[in-house]
Design a protein around this nucleic acid. Structure first.
Length: 895
RNA sequence: GCGGACGUGGCGAAACCGGUAGACGCACGAGACUUAAAAUCUUGCGCCGCAAGGCGUGCGGGUUCGAGUCCCGCCGUCCGCACCA
């Protein structure tokens, strides 16, 4: 540590800050001091610098290749939480890295700003939803800015901005014209006390979450989007999304739920209100095992029979009541009511089976009616057992006794047909085909008995919400003309500001000056649609809007074409199904209506894990916040005690941060204590990004130490000498590490393996620290290698800790911003060594290792190995049977 | 019930295509510096054993010269869906 420490380390802008001084012990040759890095002072300064230079604003045009990285935009709930920090830190690493790699990066941010919490706040605290929302946005925006994210704030949008929802309304009209939006009656959860519609999650145990009233099912006419038109494509295209997690694709597949089966008509033996019942089945092969038919409580046949049968009517009502509670459904026992009707088997009119109304049959799947084959379906088995119906096995599994198998439970696997007349001996697959073929050509009345049918679990998307704080549906209802689209030039249909929330229900419904308008077709008196859109609509196209956020049309198609699909989308798994599926649908719908040119919105998807924290409880069982306790450790046992009183506190499970369990850590506190860089670094250390990360005080401290370490190393590194002609061993060794780390980190960021980047940075810091302890003369090859390593280290951490990186970059003597400089290329010559260390195994156990030239041939390696003492002693007097040499990997001696 | 993921030191984890298990960090131990503390630096740290050595990636089998990795069967944890006919 000679020459290099003489130069002034303290830059004009790095003030004395905390006044703490780090003393470097070194080897006593010299004493050098460096100011501690002061994040609180430096971070706002660099943020202002980036903003001044508009570094992260994406220009309209660029020669560079485009790269669109997006994190799921937040709901403006009031304050950001650690989950946001982690999510946005990940996206920011990618954005900053890609920028340094020469891409034109689009990295925008906005607000998913409509939704129920704003109305709840209005009711509870008498603030207007708009004021509440925009205040929250202002708070959260400044919080996000303090994290130092490289976002293009000039593109900021909030879905509650009239500019945004005007375009959403235009899109809705396009969908209406394209036949992708329509109205029909549908059931809603109705709270009779609050006089309002409830979302499913607002129904708790069959009661309204706020009022506690028993929830009723009501029929309302609502708007739907035809997502089912795209069901086949939404399913099939999942296979073309290799950069999506397998898990998410599987969840979507299950959600879409494609099944292939047969619609089969069963003639009633005693025709009453109908002459037949149509059922849907995916197991026509088991038709000869049928012992009953069952229809849903809401099935027309059930309703018709109930007219003259009060007991059946009572049963139907009981089914409906039980149906409101999801919890009850799970445990509900199978129950049925015999209608007295009989139907004839499609293959043999002599066989008659009874028709039940059953509580486990769903009206909105298939035809709302099933045939029961107890031997091969567990639900039917339970039902048949209860009501004493026959259980006839018709499928024999390979090498098992069908009758014995069916004694205890249903068998739903494949096998060979039995007890099935002409199907006997066929496989289940062949029997399926045979039944389909025969019934398609058989007739009942003057139509085929059966037809093949592909069925979907996916339903059309009901978007009507009887709410104020949402995007108004731009439709006007006229008694004589019916529903009319609002004229395009009248958009946006603005939400009125003068509303009150002092009574239940939707304020739009009781706002005459807003609600009552002239019919655009006939000019007569008409009413606006007072429903607003599901907020999932808002988030189904915001990623497209970001490409031209101020356009007077929903998108600018050519600009959207340049950016879409999003190259890397990052967010929580909780959106694996709805948000992502709706976005995929919406993108297709927008393509149909000419707004974008792609089908898929997100080429790459990454779902990050949560931020979790230990929980703490006092003796009374009350949750205690982490800030209120102190942890001590003795003899390997961790104990918690309340600060102040010293009361012992129980350390509970590690759980997702939540207010109710008080195990939240406020990002603001962390930013004030440690700074954004430390928080960002810790969030991406340790745990792989897709897994949960445990927030610990010790972990943050570790990250904070590393921040100071990088700062010290950057300051200790010698000034740049001229690159020498040749490098000695020590310099080359260091260069191998620093170039290797550079290459590794680049690859790992591409694969979003941030925890490995952190490890690589640590290794490089260790190596550089060791090297600096043996200070070379300032002009030496080693000095060059050290300086280069310091620069690589700063470069490597720069996407993660951008403020520190700028400060260190300046300390290294650079006059440019690191945010504007290119990612250096690792020297390929330094990434490959000319010698390799080969482990030597004897019978698969490692005994020694040898260092050989990279090109060493097997014969010469064998020769060396045979003479190794470790080898000869390990094999004793046994003969060597063979020697396996895997070039550049390993040697195994088999004796 | 169905579907999926995972299981590695005291802890978070790493280990590419089957090739040195435990990189890196945390915690902990020892030492240096210090009046002292913090910070920093050096060093140790899977288990058993004084050592030589043995054992070790949830458990039991298998394939292989070689298995954390592949195959079969269990056990456990987590997540998603849940009467979808």
């Amino acid at each position: 540590m000679t020459g290099s420490c003489v130069r002034a380390k303290v830059r004009a802008f790095s003030r004395a800050g905390s006044g703490l001084r780090a003393t470097l012990a070194g080897y006593g040759k010299s004493l050098m001091t460096t100011e501690r890095y002061n994040a609180r002072e430096a971070e706002p300064r660099w943020q202002a610098e980036w903003e001044k230079r508009k570094l992260f604003e994406t220009a309209a045009t660029s020669e560079k290749p485009p790269y669109y990285v997006l994190e799921m935009f937040p709901y403006p709930s009031g304050r950001i939480h650690m989950g946001h920090v982690r999510n946005y830190a990940m996206g920011d690493v990618v954005a900053r890295y890609k920028r340094a790699k020469g891409f034109d990066v689009l990295h925008p941010m906005g607000w998913d700003a409509f939704g129920l919490p704003a109305e709840n706040a209005a009711m509870e605290r008498k603030v207007h939803p708009k004021a509440w929302t925009y205040e929250n946005i202002a708070t959260m925006r400044s919080q996000l800015k303090s994290i130092g994210l490289s976002l293009d704030w000039s593109r900021e949008i909030a879905t509650c901005d009239p500019d945004y929802y005007a375009q959403q309304q235009a899109l809705f009209l396009d969908l209406l014209e394209a036949g992708l939006a329509y109205r029909r009656k549908s059931k809603v959860n109705w709270d009779p006390v609050d006089n309002t519609v409830l979302a499913n999650e607002q129904v708790v145990d069959g009661r309204g979450w706020r009022s506690g009233a028993l929830v009723e099912q009501r029929e309302l006419t609502q708007w739907f989007l035809k997502i089912t038109d795209f069901a086949e494509d939404l399913l099939g295209a999942l296979d073309d999304l290799p950069r999506w997690p397998e898990k998410v694709r599987t969840m979507q597949k299950n959600w879409i739920g494609r099944s292939e089966g047969l619609l089969v008509r069963w003639a009633l033996a005693n025709p009453a209100d109908a002459t037949e019942i149509q059922v849907y089945t995916t197991r026509p092969d088991t038709l000869f095992g049928a012992s009953f038919l069952a229809v849903a409580a809401d099935h027309p046949i059930a309703a018709a029979r109930a007219q003259s049968n009060p007991a059946l009517q009572a049963f139907i009502e009981e089914c409906r009541r039980a149906g409101t509670s999801a919890a009850a459904l799970e445990t509900a026992e199978k129950m049925g009511y015999d209608t007295g009707l009989k139907v004839r088997h499609p293959f043999d009119p002599a066989i008659e089976v009874p028709v039940y109304v059953a509580n486990f049959v769903l009206m909105d799947y298939g035809t709302g009616a099933i045939f029961g084959c107890p031997a091969h379906d567990q639900r039917d088995y339970d039902f048949a057992s209860k009501y004493g119906l026959p259980i006839v096995p018709v499928v024999a599994p390979q090498g098992a006794d069908a009758q014995a198998l069916v004694a205890t439970h249903a068998y739903d696997g494949d096998g060979v047909m039995i007890n099935s007349r002409f199907l006997d001996g066929m496989t289940t697959d062949a029997a399926f085909e045979e039944v389909a073929r025969r019934l398609e050509s058989a007739t009942l009345g003057n139509a085929a008995v059966a037809e093949r049918k592909v069925n979907w679990r996916l339903r059309d998307w009901g978007i009507s919400r009887q709410r104020y704080w949402g995007c108004p549906i731009p439709v006007i209802h006229c008694e004589s003309c019916g529903p009319q689209p609002a004229p395009r030039d009248s958009l946006p249909v603005l939400l009125p500001d003068d509303v009150s929330f002092d009574q239940p229900g939707n304020p739009l419904d009781r706002h005459p000056t807003w609600r009552d308008v002239a019919c655009p077709a006939c000019g007569g008196p008409a009413r606006r649609e007072t429903d607003t859109m599901d907020t999932f609509v808002d988030s189904s196209w915001y990623f497209a809007r970001f490409t031209a956020p101020r356009a007077k049309t929903p998108t600018e198609k050519t600009v959207a074409g340049r950016w879409l699909p999003v190259d890397q989308y990052i967010g929580g798994v909780e959106h694996a199904i709805l948000h992502l599926l709706y976005s995929r649908f919406f993108t297709r719908a927008m393509k149909t209506t000419g707004h974008v040119g792609v089908d898929e919105p997100f080429a790459g998807l990454f779902t990050q894990g949560m931020v979790v924290h230990e929980t703490y409880k006092d003796a009374a069982g009350e949750w205690i916040a982490p800030a209120e306790i102190a942890i001590t450790e003795a003899d390997g046992v961790r104990r918690a005690a309340k600060i102040g009183s010293g009361e012992p506190i129980e350390i509970g499970a590690i759980e997702k941060m939540s207010k109710s369990k008080k195990n939240v850590v406020d990002p603001n506190d962390i930013l004030e204590t440690y700074g954004a860089d430390t928080a960002r670094w810790f969030m991406l250390s340790d745990s792989p990004p897709e897994r949960d990360v445990i927030w610990t005080e010790a972990g943050v401290e570790g990250a904070s130490r590393f921040v100071q370490r990088v700062w010290r190393l950057a300051n200790e590194a010698p000034m740049a000498p001229v690159e020498p002609e040749a490098f000695g061993d020590a310099a080359t060794a260091l260069r191998r590490i620093s170039h290797g780390a550079l290459a590794r980190v680049g690859e790992d960021i591409e694969r979003l393996r941030f925890n490995r980047c952190v490890a690589a940075a640590n290794e490089l810091a260790n190596a550089l620290g060791q090297s600096l302890a043996n200070a070379p003369s300032p002009e030496s090859d080693l000095a060059f290698a050290q300086r280069e390593a310091a620069e690589h280290l700063v470069r490597i951490v720069s996407p993660f800790m951008p403020h520190l990186a700028e400060e260190a970059w300046a300390a290294l003597g650079h006059e440019t911003l690191i945010a504007e400089s290119a990612w250096p290329k690792a020297d390929p010559a330094l990434l490959a060594t000319d010698t390799v260390t080969l482990p030597v195994q004897v019978n698969g156990k490692k005994r020694d290792e040898i260092v050989v030239s990279r090109e060493a041939d097997s014969a010469s390696i064998e020769k060396i190995v045979r003479e190794l003492a470790a080898v000869t002693s390990a094999i004793g007097d046994k003969p060597i049977r063979k020697i396996i040499v895997v070039p550049q990997r390993i040697v195994n001696v088999v004796a």
